[in-house]
Design a protein around this nucleic acid. Structure first.
Length: 577
RNA sequence: CGGGGCGUAGCGUAGUGGCUAGCGCGCCUGCUUUGGGAGCAGGAGAUCGGGAGUUCGAAUCUCCCCGCCCCGACCA
């Protein structure tokens, strides 16, 4: 039983000056965490219990799914990461250090290499697979900008699992087993979340999903269809548009449009000189980019920006993408800045990509590749032909849901987990193979599955707190019941002690406020700030032989006879679970 | 890395060249109080982020450095 009289805890009346988001403010005020350096936090007793509760739930679900826990060091030698090239690819985000001999080490940002090598060291037959291993470990990433307290730290706790299979069908199965385990885990943690399709991207896998906990202070934006439940990362959002009606457009016509280097200025001139009714959406923006130092043009509707992240995620095989700079324009003098059109892309030696919104057969107003001139009735398929289509235009609220065509919303969320099918990238790089039935060597295929454990503490706090403090779900709370004894007599303290002891004997964790000095008000405020799901007040009601039971979340209050209090509380807890 | 803001006691803060750096919370002692962050009295606690400089005199002005927060870039 935790006792407030001796608990290492100091709650704060004021919000810390360096905190912005609710979880950060409240976790500091309630004495759960303290900042040590940017993105690096210490856990005080209440915080550490909470963190371990989340770990416990995760561990139980992992074990129940048949995954086995192992543990790696946080400090690792450079060599495995050199073999997969990540020693250099990870860049400045990797914490590096040297031993006394000058040998290079790193603090693990993620452990694919180590798991791969561990399995390689032990197993060599298809009969050993499938296998899933996991660990709960402190990770280190020197983030360019740690933020929001514990939500994005440079040191954080992560549960990472890896699956090993002989073939793709096995990987699919392992993936689904992890996905199911995550669904169970987050239900127990009381988190609201959406499972969102994501881009496997640089990790080189085929399938990837993120578990996003919606919350206004989240740093990830994603697309959600409230009608059918479709959810996708902005990068992975598929564009659907109604196919344009087939019709014959008049021949391409070059217009005199002086001083119209921007879409806005163009629309204004079009409407004043060439008949009204034009909007930005009728124009075609031709954005010049360098993809691995090769020029490409990306076509998007004039009223939308190119979303570089989205483009990059969908441009397979391109590692460096940047917008054209002055010197690039200097190398391609035929490109007239502000008046570029796709008509002459082939002639200029530029690869032409189009967003799916630039549908075949659609007609546009676009640059005429001549200063102060634009062209209209520029038809896709007649006057220009994209080399390929790629999702590149920004996604907006109101865009059509790809599965049910209802307008989608854009929502913010905290990424609490990411699962993906890695495939054979690491197994190949580190030569993890097993012999198959025919005695032939096969490269193992892998999946990788992460949960941000310390981040989950913040995510739960974000989703469950209210104006007066934290308010934990039962499985997460540092104590399920917070008993407050008030008054100056011994009796309430004795009764509180007795109820606490009985609850603990039933396996119900208790935080007992047995402090004699602070006034009742102080104790109530602290209890509300700390956020145990049930607050029991032993005080005034004792005159009638009662204790007061409060549900933290709903604010609901009731009284119960002292004798029946323990069973009342335990059945209330069962109902809250 | 670009832009903005900040750094004074454990926490929140006042103090734009002049006396011993002020206040609130918290902490200690005593008395009173005890169901919504109590009252009175007394007390401890500060290299004013660090260094250099200007000045008779620097928390305050100048320069350099360090750290922190926010927006952006970036980010399994």
């Amino acid at each position: 039983m935790l006792r407030m009289s001796s608990l290492f805890l100091r709650t704060l009346r004021d919000d810390p000056a360096d905190a912005e988001v609710a979880s950060h403010k409240l976790l500091v005020r309630a004495g759960y965490i303290r900042r040590i350096a940017a993105g690096i936090y210490s856990w005080l007793p209440l915080g550490y219990i909470t963190l371990r509760n989340i770990e416990r739930v995760i561990r139980e679900e992992m074990d129940a799914a048949g995954f086995q826990e192992v543990h790696f060091p946080a400090m690792l030698p450079k060599e495995p990461y050199e073999e997969t090239n990540r020693w250099s690819e990870y860049g400045p985000e990797l914490f590096r250090l040297q031993d006394r001999k000058g040998a290079d080490y790193l603090l693990g940002p993620t452990h694919e290499e180590m798991f791969t090598l561990m399995v390689k060291g032990e197993y060599s037959s298809y009969k050993d697979l499938p296998l899933s291993l996991y660990q709960i470990q402190t990770k280190y990433r020197d983030e360019p900008r740690p933020r929001s307290g514990i939500i994005r730290g440079r040191e954080f706790v992560m549960k990472d699992s890896y699956s090993f299979d002989i073939d793709d069908a096995g990987l699919d199965l392992s993936y689904m087993r992890h996905r199911d385990a995550y669904v169970k885990t987050f239900k127990r943690l009381g988190l609201n979340y959406n499972i969102v399709s994501a881009m496997a991207g640089a990790m080189g896998g085929s399938k990837s999903e993120e578990f996003l906990a919606p919350c206004p202070t989240g740093e990830d934006t994603y697309v959600l269809c409230e009608k059918c439940g479709y959810a996708a990362n902005v990068e992975a959002m598929k564009t659907v548009i109604d196919a344009p009606a087939a019709r014959d457009f008049p021949a391409l016509e070059v217009l005199d449009t002086p001083n119209t280097p921007t879409i806005d200025s163009l629309v204004e001139v079009l409407n004043s000189q060439y008949g009204g009714g034009y909007t930005g959406a009728d124009t075609l923006k031709n954005v010049m980019l360098m993809a691995d130092e090769k020029p490409i043009a990306v076509l998007v509707p004039g009223d939308r920006e190119v979303d570089l992240k989205r483009l990059q995620a969908n441009l397979i095989g391109v590692t460096e993408l940047r917008i054209f700079e002055e010197e690039d324009f200097a190398k391609y003098p035929k490109l007239v800045k502000g008046y570029i059109g796709p008509q002459d892309a082939k002639q200029f030696g530029i690869t032409l990509y189009a967003d799916p919104r630039i549908a075949p057969g659609s007609a546009w107003v676009t640059g005429a590749n001549k200063k102060n001139c634009h062209a209209r009735n520029v038809v896709n398929g007649r006057d220009f032909t994209p080399d390929s289509y790629v999702e590149s235009a920004e996604v907006r609220a109101g865009d059509m849901c790809p599965s049910c065509k209802a307008p989608v919303i854009i929502d913010r969320a905290i990424e609490i987990a990411h699962i993906f099918q890695l495939g054979r990238k690491y197994a190949e790089a580190l030569n993890l193979t097993v012999l198959d039935q025919n005695g032939k060597s096969q490269v193992v295929t892998m999946g990788s599955y992460g949960i941000g454990v310390s981040r989950a503490v913040a995510a739960v706090a974000e989703q469950t707190h209210d104006e007066i403090g934290l308010s934990w779900p039962i499985e997460v709370a540092p104590a399920k019941v917070h008993i407050v004894a008030t008054g100056k007599e011994d009796k309430p303290f004795d009764v509180a002690e007795k109820i606490g002891t009985e609850l603990e004997s039933l396996g119900i964790t208790v935080l007992l406020d047995d402090r004699r000095d602070p006034s009742a008000g102080v104790k109530f405020k602290d209890a509300e700030l700390i956020g145990a799901p049930i607050i029991v007040v032993v005080g005034k009601a004792l005159e009638q032989g009662n204790v007061e039971i409060r549900i933290r979340k709903s604010g609901e209050k009731s009284e119960s006879a002292v004798e029946g209090a323990v069973s009342t509380i335990s059945s209330m807890l069962a109902k809250l679970a």
